[in-house]
Structure formats: C-alpha cells, structure tokens
Deep mutational scan, measured.
Amino acid sequence: MTFKLIINGKTLKGETTTEAVDAATAEKVFKQYANDNGLDGEWTYDDATKTFTITE
C-alpha cells in the first residue's frame, strides 16, 4: 500500500510517499524521516486517504 506524508513545517513544506504493509510501518518510516529532517510537530492520520500530516 502507498501512504503519503504531508509536511507543513516552519521551514520544510511538501509531501512524500512510502510503500508499507500497514499504517504502523508507514508511521515509523515517516517519523524517522521527520526526525532526520529536524521536524517536530503534531501528527494526524486519515485512514480513508492513507495520509499522515505533520504540522509544526
């Protein structure tokens, strides 16, 4: 399955995708991506669209 991450950061904005077997796996990938890029914010997830959002 394809999951999307929408980034609404103070300095970084955009989106990225990952292929994962489930939402929990995708969340780990996206949280590592956010950590690697210095993002810290509030996370939301929409199961209907398989989309995570981080807002700083």
Rank of each mutant, 00 (worst) to 15 (best):
M1Q: 14
T2M: 14
T2L: 12
T2C: 08
T2K: 11
T2V: 15
T2E: 10
F3A: 01
F3R: 01
K4G: 04
K4S: 07
K4A: 05
L5Y: 01
L5T: 01
L5M: 05
I6H: 05
I6S: 04
I6Y: 05
I6W: 04
I7Q: 02
I7G: 02
I7V: 09
I7M: 07
I7C: 05
I7A: 04
I7T: 04
G9A: 07
G9R: 05
G9P: 03
K10R: 13
K10S: 07
T11C: 10
T11P: 04
L12Q: 14
L12P: 05
K13P: 06
K13W: 12
G14H: 11
G14C: 11
G14N: 06
E15C: 11
E15H: 12
E15P: 05
T16W: 15
T16M: 15
T17L: 12
T17C: 07
T17D: 05
T18L: 08
E19C: 11
E19K: 10
E19H: 09
E19Q: 13
A20K: 03
A20V: 05
A20P: 01
V21S: 12
V21T: 13
V21P: 14
V21I: 14
V21R: 07
D22K: 03
A23W: 09
A24F: 15
A24P: 07
T25N: 09
T25P: 02
T25G: 13
T25Q: 08
A26I: 01
A26N: 00
A26Q: 00
A26T: 00
E27M: 09
E27P: 00
E27K: 09
K28G: 09
V29Y: 15
V29I: 15
V29E: 07
V29S: 06
V29G: 04
V29M: 09
F30T: 00
F30A: 01
F30W: 02
F30N: 00
F30R: 00
F30E: 00
K31M: 10
Q32I: 10
Y33D: 01
Y33M: 05
A34I: 06
N35P: 01
N35S: 13
D36K: 11
D36M: 10
D36Y: 08
D36V: 12
N37Y: 12
N37S: 08
N37W: 15
N37K: 14
N37L: 15
N37A: 15
G38P: 01
G38R: 08
G38W: 06
G38M: 09
L39T: 03
L39I: 14
L39F: 11
L39E: 02
D40W: 14
D40E: 15
D40L: 15
D40Q: 15
D40A: 13
G41I: 02
G41F: 04
E42W: 12
E42Y: 12
E42Q: 09
W43Q: 01
W43F: 05
W43S: 01
W43P: 01
T44N: 07
T44Y: 10
T44W: 06
T44I: 08
T44E: 08
T44R: 13
Y45Q: 01
Y45A: 01
Y45S: 01
D46S: 06
D46L: 04
D46M: 04
D47V: 10
D47T: 08
D47I: 09
A48F: 12
A48E: 12
A48G: 08
A48K: 10
T49Y: 05
K50W: 05
T51L: 03
T51A: 05
T51I: 07
T51F: 03
T51P: 00
T51D: 01
F52I: 01
F52V: 01
F52K: 00
F52P: 00
F52L: 01
F52M: 02
F52D: 00
T53K: 05
T53H: 06
T53V: 09
T53Q: 06
I54Q: 01
I54M: 06
I54G: 00
I54A: 02
T55N: 11
T55I: 07
T55R: 05
E56T: 11
E56N: 06
E56S: 08
